[in-house]
Design a binder for these strands. Structure first.
Lengths: 243, 243
DNA sequence: TTATCATTGTAACATATTGATACAATATAA
DNA sequence: TTATATTGTATCAATATGTTACAATGATAA
């Protein structure tokens, strides 16, 4: 499946793909109290970009998003949600893509399908940082986690897409309990609170947070964690999915 | 602009439009404690459908949605939000469209662009029922308000799109204060509560509702309404947009 | 004119939720 | 053993919401 881009590149009319529709994925992870995003670098260009792709003629758009995710993180069964579709005409900027292709020794004609105007459907994914294995493909020399607090300049309108994704998970954090998808199966209350604080970018009250989370009735207390800290050991919790 | 569909129909390759991308609009209104939706009927077919259209090559997608809205309701400056993009391959069902075109005496070739697979971007609009003027165009013999509680069968996956739109406004009702867009400039507390109850499909407590709404600090009390009811006249309120 | 009626606006109290503080419990390090 | 930092939870305060009640009032009909 590393051949996907070659297939797109050497196929000037885009046969087999839905025309004019791209998918961009904002893949969030969480580690050491920092929110992370998965970004690609394109070979010999220094461009940073969100992982993305196109929809096959014979697949649902949501399937396509999962396929892209699988290739980037090696993970199936991921929490994945569509959040917005970006359709401004100002998005149509062919220069970056031309440079990426040129860096690969490929010089497409002006009406190559990849150079036409695209509408991009944004998805965000929440993955367990400890399990995801970022994998660059044939056109990117890296696929890495970046701290949200320390991002490079992104290609095209990808910074805008990322900002909208972040805003979406902030709004949905409480209601959809999406936060749990960013943690490993077992976690302490402190880690959970740290996650919430990082996403919402504000301090929460420890006692109230713990009371509320336990009150939801979706956490199971497992065992004591034995830590290296010079203090009382916290419990480990596990998320109980609704039956 | 009534010529829009003719332009689409007699243009087998879809020149001037973004390929494969449609817009469907769920236009909500509110009258006499009933939620309404604007639906089209296509001539000589009996098909009911959400108003929709396509994106011009030289316009933003959100602009296109506003253009479509303007043609259907005669209203500018409407509350309009994108809520989801529908991309299942099962959406690709050409039969209804073929019948619509056939009823107009037009028989497109199998690779007419309108018969290809489309991804549809859903928008919902909230309009003041007393101001909107539904206007059918050349291909529809009607464009009318329907009660949400008494809908006909809709074309393709339009029922699904409508359901998702309703779900969205239910979720956003409190947070975005979107309800006010469905009422005329002046309204009574009872009307506002009726609107909330209709959208959320549940009874609210009158005293608590009034207290909360007034507590938001976004309502201005204007004057007494002099009604025909045999009871105390309610105040009229006006929504104060945030400065 | 007056009594009746339905509905409005709001007060008053009860209950529930969240904020703030305090403190015992305890795992490690010295 | 003692010092220390953090956890789990109790307690009270503040705020928000649910519930009940009642005076005010604008038609309607006697």
């Amino acid at each position: 499946m590393d051949q996907e881009f070659k297939k797109q590149e050497t196929n000037p009319t885009g046969t087999g793909y839905l025309p004019g529709i791209a998918i961009d994925a904002v893949i969030f992870g969480f580690h050491k109290n920092e929110l992370k995003v998965l970004l690609l670098t394109y070979k010999n260009t220094g461009f940073f970009a969100l992982p993305g792709g196109f929809v096959h003629e014979d697949e649902d758009m949501n399937q396509a998003a999962r396929r892209i995710l699988l290739h980037r993180t090696g993970l199936k069964d991921i929490f994945l949600e569509q959040f917005y579709t970006f359709g401004d005409k100002s998005r149509h900027d062919t220069e970056p893509l031309k440079k990426i292709m040129a860096a690969r020794g490929f010089f497409p004609g002006d009406n190559h399908w990849l150079l036409s105007r695209f509408v991009s459907v944004g998805y965000y994914a929440l993955v367990d940082f400890t399990k995801a294995l970022p994998t660059p493909d044939s056109i990117s020399d890296s696929c890495e986690w970046f701290n949200l607090t320390d991002l490079p300049r992104l290609m095209q309108d990808h910074e805008h897409i990322l900002a909208k994704a972040l805003q979406t998970i902030q709004q949905d954090l409480d209601h959809k309990l999406i936060g749990f998808n960013l943690l490993p199966q077992q976690f302490t209350m402190g880690e959970l609170q740290g996650l919430y604080e990082t996403i919402l970018n504000k301090k929460l009250i420890r006692a109230a947070f713990q009371r509320k989370m336990l009150g939801l009735g979706i956490l199971e207390r497992i065992a004591k964690k034995w830590t290296g800290g010079a203090h009382k050991a916290p419990y480990l919790y596990r998320f109980i999915p609704v039956t």
